[in-house]
Write a protein that binds this DNA or RNA. Structure first.
Ligand code: SF4
Ligand code: SF4
Lengths: 144, 144
DNA sequence: ATTTAATCGGACAAAAATATCCGAATAAAT
DNA sequence: ATTTATTCGGATATTTTTGTCCGATTAAAT
């Protein structure tokens, strides 16, 4: 469904959001440990998220990653996915054909339009703040 | 969503089904040309489909790939996907966590169960025969 | 029997995704 | 000023996926 990079990005963002809710910054090692991901690779992904302005960072001692409260409320999972994997999940097709304008679709077109739409709807209607809250309450978990 | 291998497998199977409907065998070069896929790679995938007994093959001159009429009616797209990509699409999770038994799920669990179920339902309810008929009528297309 | 046209199977190659290493830059604490 | 703890950025390595090559095998046609 998603690339590994994107999965890490989603999990990391949720964790950072939780920490930011309590006014804390999350360090790279912290995040990697908490979401059980390779440290150096996670670093690259966090940099992408910073560039996309989904999260923010400060360097130096006591530095780390954090998120604005407003972002948590407005950012959907779809936003993270788009930043890392692009919009292929929503536009890509069941049979991987290019340039199918719909006039002569591939045989599974109608079926997949249905699936893609429900996927998009779900991802867009789920914001990071609500996921972070579930995590904070211990209802949900980011590793194992 | 699916691997390239799986996409080729689905397209190839649909084309082979169409040919078999008219009592014709499809050769490797024929198939590759028709579904616009790399010949040698397609060969490997067809071998996998033969091993999985989704299609059948005969060697030698006038040989090629074909499909039993009964298979077309009973085989779903899901069957092809399972043969090539395994059941990861149905069991795999939004955040790529392993062994999440549901007692303490990841934050997106509920959302993804919904998506996976609709995906599975669609793939299982679509049989190869119906897709091949659309192709035969010119309503659908396997390349470009 | 020989030629011809097809699949099969193993080794190899290229590309993409995933992951690692390390020095530079930054900023707080000492 | 120096040390310490952090992110940043570039180069490199590993693994997986995708793709190629070619000889062996098979079976029909000549
Ligand atoms: S016809 Fe539809 S499902 Fe098929 S490749 Fe095109 S857009 Fe995708
Ligand atoms: S909790 Fe659910 S969605 Fe999350 S990793 Fe586990 S099975 Fe997948």
């Amino acid at each position: 469904m998603f690339s590994k990079a994107c999965e890490y990005a989603i999990r990391a963002t949720i964790y950072i959001a939780r920490q930011s809710m309590e006014g804390l910054r999350a360090s790279l090692t912290d995040i990697s440990h908490e979401i059980d991901s390779p440290v150096a690779f996670t670093s690259k992904i966090l940099q992408q998220l910073v560039k996309a302005e989904i999260i923010y960072s400060t360097r130096g001692q006591t530095g780390g990653f954090y998120m604005e409260a407003a972002k948590m409320d407005h950012l959907s999972v779809a936003g993270i996915v788009t930043a890392i994997d692009g919009d292929a999940v929503y536009t890509e097709c069941g049979l991987g054909l290019k340039e199918c304008s719909g006039s002569i679709p591939c045989p599974v077109h109608d079926k997949f339009v249905e699936i893609r739409n429900s996927l998009k709807r779900v991802l867009e209607s789920t914001n990071v703040a609500s996921l972070a809250k579930g995590l904070k309450n211990g209802d949900t978990c980011l590793k194992r």
